[in-house]
Design a protein around this nucleic acid. Sequence first.
DNA 1: GAGTGGTCTAGACCACGGA
DNA 2: CCGTGGTCTAGACCACTCC
Lengths: 239, 239
Amino acid sequence: MKSIYKEIYDDLVRDIEAGKYGPNTLLPSENELMNYYDTSRQTVRKALNHLSQDGYIQKIRGKGSVVLDRSSLDFPLSWLASFKELSNKMNINAKTKVHSLKIMEPTPTLAEHLQTGTDKEIWEVVRVRNIDGQNVILDKDYIKRDLVPNLTIKTCEQSIFEFIEKELNLEISYAKKVFSAQDATKEDKELLDLKHYNVVIVVQNYIYLKDTTLLQYTESRHRPDKFKFIDFARRELNK
Amino acid sequence: MKSIYKEIYDDLVRDIEAGKYGPNTLLPSENELMNYYDTSRQTVRKALNHLSQDGYIQKIRGKGSVVLDRSSLDFPLSWLASFKELSNKMNINAKTKVHSLKIMEPTPTLAEHLQTGTDKEIWEVVRVRNIDGQNVILDKDYIKRDLVPNLTIKTCEQSIFEFIEKELNLEISYAKKVFSAQDATKEDKELLDLKHYNVVIVVQNYIYLKDTTLLQYTESRHRPDKFKFIDFARRELNK
DNA sequence: GAGTGGTCTAGACCACGGA
DNA sequence: CCGTGGTCTAGACCACTCC
């Protein structure tokens, strides 16, 4: 059973993306939505606040909720999303090749990234993402084995994300991402079609479950010209 | 007069950062906070939800609000912050040199970025950020002149941000950032100490006021090895 | 003045975790 | 079982925008 505010949120997202409410027009007022969904104002406001948080609308006191123009925003890929989800949304001709999949004991560096001991087994998954015939992203995933006992090449070719959430019923709650640029390593040069570039854009991703345990550390190494990341940020506290 | 939830939020942020509530310990329960501040539960929850949003805590049903470890998070520089705010927070030896400041009519490209006409005057501010004796960031700001009539070199050396908010009383509400990498231009090579790097990390920043008008377009060009950006993201809707 | 969103109250019931 | 957080209600008063 979906909660009411989530239903309202989903409805409005759908309507906005379908163009039912165009950019710079007003959404129905909180009162109208309240009556329409036969619910309390707080519930409506919760839905609207999430729309605001996610960059769909701007609430203006005395006026209403203005729909923002997200056409140039393309995809809000700031948030936790898997490569598969992304490539679907963007209609990209993408393929994934699993380069290696193995169980290992972490090096001291990896143990620190994963907040675990060097004697605890972890999975190492190395995947190459191919877009339009070019190998442009190298993904290295490190996953705690005690949380994910089994992993197959087939799963890694699809979406590890989906597998973890749907098959294992682990709830991913939040993540910390660190963006930087690094000199390309020998491995980068071997596995990617780097052309003349001597640096790669690195996205380190620490993925946490809802009980705050760290599940996975991922390093995504992008060829510079194929890297793009969009972020929507609010300065004020949400109302 | 500060609102109650903001007061609670600020208090808790202060206490968490001061170490009064250490990582992996529990905050007082919603009931306790409710009594302490003599307010309703909803008001307390609003404050806690913002803490959750900002990566300070994880709320766990049946248990409480767990303080997350932000020591490695350093600074949540994902969010709207000026260079001055940042360098203050990070104790960095940073200097700003204004390379040029002028009024111009936008090129077609710039007009599109700023969502304005090619006949409307805009400011162009070019600044070089020097960290530890090296020129590592080139900031190019384009600001609508009708919103900001006057701008001085002195202001640009300090913080344009502060000037806009405090002197002009314009309320900045949200921003869209686009991260990418580009081949270094002739200008990059002239103004920055680029060493052997042939690409720069570019952060395009579109800054909006609370009435949804676009105020400013900024392009921040970073030497790759000095670029770092940290993002905290939640997968679930906030509760 | 009428309508909008922003803050807040005082209740209620539910789902979950831990002892 | 009790205490936790998650959802929701039905009111209230305020600040703001627009006419």
